[in-house]
Design a protein around this nucleic acid. Structure first.
Lengths: 212, 212
DNA sequence: CTAATTAGGGAATGATCATTTCCAAATCAA
DNA sequence: TTGATTTGGAAATGATCATTCCCTAATTAG
């Protein structure tokens, strides 16, 4: 599934095309960054429209011009969160040379997001899985797609390592990819309780035994 | 921290001592089981008092006689959830002979909770970490204590394995215990998206490389 | 038996929530 | 310029939420 498929019709407006009428004054990306922060820290249900609008620097009326409803804000913020995160992750992976090192960089990426203050603020995808999986089938689909994308990426990296000789060819790449997926999402859960950087780094290092 | 320390004063009443006045008619444990199901499936904030009281088979007035407030219901349900889960986990571990097998049983315990319908319903501790970590310091403390207890238990099991020769003595028991903790809580997150039993079992098997 | 106490439950209560309405301001099409 | 269109924003709206009140019922203490 592509990330473009994330936005359902009329949930969020076009960011670029010039249309008639008064032009939008606020920066959509900045507003979504603010919204995403509120949703991530407080969770979907505890994030009130007043908190969202205040963080976004907009009146509620303006928000409802730009988004269909609270769910629409969430879905748009979720899409942006995935795009930004995926970009940062891919840049790190590209800089690593071997398959094994790419796997390590992916694990480290999530470990580094999961300690200290950043860790306390949580992950929008993990939060979405908790808050919406049984209540919103479409949102649940986006969450599952985000997990699947990570799982597939990790499986690809493992196979690269198996091809270049840095990961044993005998291990089950798909099963190990799911193990790594659970591990990295678990980092984000444990990170919400406030963990030291050294602890998370050590856990990431220990995890590399999975591909040894 | 002991599990007894979970209940703050006046949050939930004594279950046993006979007092004056009309005796309680409902079964506290059954009511808490119902409440923890609602909290686990819907999350703390999406669980309304009406849903809770309906599931518990009580009127709202009766619930507020037995608990201080919604938070009190949650804390009592959380305490019961931990007690029940810990008991089941310890029974499984006790049945295993070697340290390595005890570790495997602990991983399998969480893997089995994380597939199919049970997996979709989520984990109250993981949900608590997501819903309350930044909003309720006391609840956050209970969540952190639950994680710490699992982490310590896992570290103990690894050391048993290192002592009986089933786990390499060279590996870092504490770091690996945290890795396993993240992994098992990640199981519960991924389980919310609906995973097949075979997938989760394979991921649990693959995870045993961490102690190989 | 009577008074005190506690539980059960349904009907208020007041706060907060998501959403809508309405009007002024800014742009485009003609 | 004029009209249509869209945004910004403050105030209103109606629903839902957690919580309290109040009355009845069941028990214990004396």
């Amino acid at each position: 599934m592509t990330i473009d498929a994330l936005t359902s019709a009329a949930v969020a407006p076009d960011t670029k095309t010039r249309s008639r009428g008064r032009p939008r004054e606020f920066d959509m990306d900045a507003a979504l960054d603010a919204a995403l922060r509120v949703f991530s820290e407080r969770g979907y249900h505890a994030a009130s429209i007043s908190e969202l609008t205040e963080a976004m620097g907009l009146a509620s009326g303006s928000v409802y011009k730009a988004f269909k409803d609270k769910r629409g804000i969430f879905l748009a913020a979720f899409k942006r969160y995935r795009q930004l995160g995926r970009g940062r992750l891919e840049a790190r992976i590209a800089a690593a040379k071997t398959g094994r090192e790419k796997v390590f960089q992916m694990v480290m990426y999530y470990a580094e997001l999961s300690h200290g203050e950043a860790g306390l603020k949580g992950c929008l995808v993990v939060g979405g899985a908790n808050d919406l999986s049984l209540l919103d089938a479409e949102a649940a689909g986006h969450v599952a797609a985000a997990f699947s994308a990570d799982e597939k990426l990790m499986a690809d990296l493992i196979r690269i390592g198996q091809a270049d000789g840095t990961i044993p060819p005998t291990l089950d790449a798909d099963a190990t990819a799911l193990t790594f997926l659970c591990l990295t999402k678990g980092f984000r859960v444990i990170g919400r309780t406030g963990r030291a950087e050294e602890e998370m780094m050590a856990a990431a290092e220990a995890a590399m035994r999975l591909v040894t």
